[in-house]
């Protein structure tokens, strides 16, 4: 992928993150504020809340989407910084391959967690 395409995806991923992470931050961390508007439920990190979200298709899909977008956006940014340090040709390749592998690995792991959570909830009650 040429840098122009990679950069355009970086911006697009940023927009996706802005919406989804904004939502995530509001639900998970600004729960007191949401409570002021009467939309907050139980403590968001309680197991019951986790189970409720894991069972929802909306939350599962947005988790995976946010995971992919944030990994791409963040690791592309890290790549920018690393490549601007002017590494040699071998190190440059290592940065490209290493960050791609790291991103794919974390994406598979995070997706597994999102998909396995409903099963764990059913077993754990």
């Amino acid at each position: 992928m040429r840098d122009r395409t990679a950069w355009t995806w970086h911006i697009a991923a940023g927009v996706v993150i802005l919406v989804l992470l904004g939502l995530h931050m509001a639900i998970m961390h600004l729960d007191q504020t949401l409570g002021l508007f009467g939309v907050a439920g139980a403590e968001p990190v309680d197991w019951e809340s986790v189970v409720a979200r894991a069972g929802s298709a909306f939350f599962t899909v947005t988790y995976v989407l946010l995971l992919g977008a944030a990994l791409y956006h963040g690791l592309y940014g890290l790549r920018n910084i690393l490549l601007e340090l002017n590494p040699g040709a071998t190190l440059r390749r290592a940065v490209n391959v290493g960050l791609t592998a790291l991103g794919l690995g974390l994406f598979v792991f995070g997706t597994w967690a999102a998909l396995a959570a409903p099963g764990a909830a059913a077993v754990g009650g």
Partner: peptide
Amino acid sequence: GLGLVAYFVMHIFVTSARALGP
């Protein structure tokens, strides 16, 4: 940006504990 990436990687691991039960 660097701080957020570092936190995010840690966050993925910590929250993935939900896949293993309560």
